[in-house]
Design a protein around this nucleic acid. Structure first.
Lengths: 114, 114
DNA sequence: CGGGATCCACAATGATACTG
DNA sequence: CAGTATCATTGTGGATCCCG
């Protein structure tokens, strides 16, 4: 049953890589966290995430929208006002998010002891 | 997960970014998965992960070693034989790993329905 | 066998400026 | 306000060769 075992773990690799494609990278999870905590506007999100540039935020918002995690709504035209909101689907990543926060904290403790 | 507003979510962002620094990127988790499933040798790991190059594997193994997730052991000198093993500490990422696999599977179902 | 060194090409990101 | 445009810099991938 070695072949089956082998296939299974490459399947796992694919699943993790799929996940990384959607929520990986430097900015996607920070954006989701910021929005989760109430930010809906481009500039608010931008200011809430240290060091992010408009270019990256714009790109990542598009990516997240394409992957159904957020929704873009034009609220008014003059002046233009846009709202980004998390979709219900986005809340399904919370398990990953919490695991990563937890591990980040754990890791920081580990590093301190060094 | 219900929206709970907290003022200092920037701490959360930092934690997630710390985690991403250590286990983020295209190859680190696949390497850990491969090793978790028994691969210890450079070439075995290399062959088990589709599309990875020696250069990237070499780089990432170093990074993982510096971050205490794996251990490099020289088993024999002539011919040189090296074994990479997961540290106990590395097993602490399993929660993140499992969450990501699970979400990857979930996401694939979602995509199929589209 | 387990890599490192090098060179090249290209993709991703960053800084800054600017606009409907 | 919500982004684009442009250019500079960095990161990554591929190929090849090399060495202990």
């Amino acid at each position: 049953m070695k072949a089956v075992k082998e296939r299974n773990f490459q399947e796992k690799i694919r699943l993790v890589q799929d996940t990384m494609f959607v929520i990986g990278g430097k900015w996607k999870l920070p954006i989701i966290i910021s929005m989760y905590h109430g930010n809906k506007r481009f500039n608010d999100i931008s200011l809430s995430i240290p060091h992010i540039t408009n270019r990256m935020l714009s790109k990542e918002l598009k990516h997240l929208e394409e992957n159904l995690l957020i929704k873009r709504t034009i609220v008014s035209e003059y002046p233009i006002k846009v709202e980004y909101t998390l979709t219900d689907y986005c809340y399904s990543v919370s398990e990953v998010l919490i695991a990563m926060e937890k591990w980040g904290k754990h890791h920081r403790e580990k590093i301190k002891k060094k």
